[in-house]
């Protein structure tokens, strides 16, 4: 691509990369990495592991922005590294790559995602239906209002970028976070959901949607363009309406 053969790349063929090593008490280690066309941040990490230090721990799977496993902190911001081109994030040919914020560091760039997924469960972000496999399939017209509302909050890839971007998660360890609440809102808009009250009661408790400050760090950083802040605002209204009528 034209931008990857820019004069800057030709003149400056190398990157200086600081990579987090160790657990929570680790430090950054400097590597010099050759620049290449269409190079992503994940390519940089993989090059270091293959050519400089095979013990570097990091996580990835699909490499095409679908699986949500490769998120890291790149120059201070949470990013999906497989779809983040080096040229869009480097400052003076420098990259700092660390593990995601707000999650326990296992080693190097790998974090323990368990708290993140535990909170999905706490926010009741799962489906409970009332039909059996013998019932006919639910028909939901794509243009219906309900389907459009559900569409706005689906396609999350569980990468935890929003969770790392959220200051409230940092301040309030029991806050379930943007991804879990966004999922809960998608569930609320599923016309097949048999127990909407279960979701609304869960998100209205301490550490739920009312902890959100609407700072929109989640919406700013979501790699697939979702807006969890909007979903959370909708949950606040829906939970109040539901709880004030049902106690």
């Amino acid at each position: 691509m034209a931008e990857d053969s820019s004069p800057d790349d030709a003149v400056q063929p190398e990157l200086q990369v600081d990579v987090w090593r160790g657990g929570a008490q680790g430090q950054y280690q400097r590597f010099t990495v050759p620049r290449s066309a269409n190079q992503t941040v994940l390519d940089v990490v993989t090059w270091i592991q293959r050519h400089r230090d095979a013990s570097l721990a990091y996580r990835f799977a699909c490499r095409v922005g679908m699986c949500g496993s490769c998120a890291m902190t790149v120059n201070g911001r949470p990013k999906w590294t497989c779809r983040t081109h080096v040229r869009t994030v480097t400052r003076d040919r420098y990259l700092q790559i660390g593990p995601l914020r707000n999650l326990p560091v296992l080693r190097d760039l790998a974090t323990d995602m368990a708290p993140f997924f535990d909170k999905w469960q706490a926010a009741q972000g799962r489906f409970s239906g009332s039909h059996s496999r013998r019932d006919p399939l639910a028909v939901i017209p794509p243009q219906s209002h309900e389907r459009q509302a559900a569409d706005a909050a689906i396609e999350c890839i569980n990468c935890a970028v929003c969770y790392a971007a959220c200051d409230v998660v940092q301040w309030q360890p029991d806050y379930v976070g943007p991804a879990a609440l966004n999922r809960a809102w998608a569930g609320c808009n599923d016309v097949r959901e048999a127990d909407r009250g279960r979701i609304l009661r869960a998100v209205a408790s301490d550490g739920g949607c009312y902890s959100c400050h609407s700072q929109q760090g989640c919406a700013q950083h979501c790699p697939v363009g979702l807006n969890p802040t909007r979903s959370i605002a909708a949950l606040k209204r829906a939970a109040l309406a539901s709880l004030s009528s049902h106690g």
């Binding site: 009661r201 209205a204 408790s205 550490g207 902890s211 109040l240 709880l243």
Partner: peptide
């Protein structure tokens, strides 16, 4: 009503 929701409303 859940306490978080009540506090938010109040």
């Amino acid at each position: 009503m859940a306490s978080a929701a009540r506090a938010y409303l109040l």
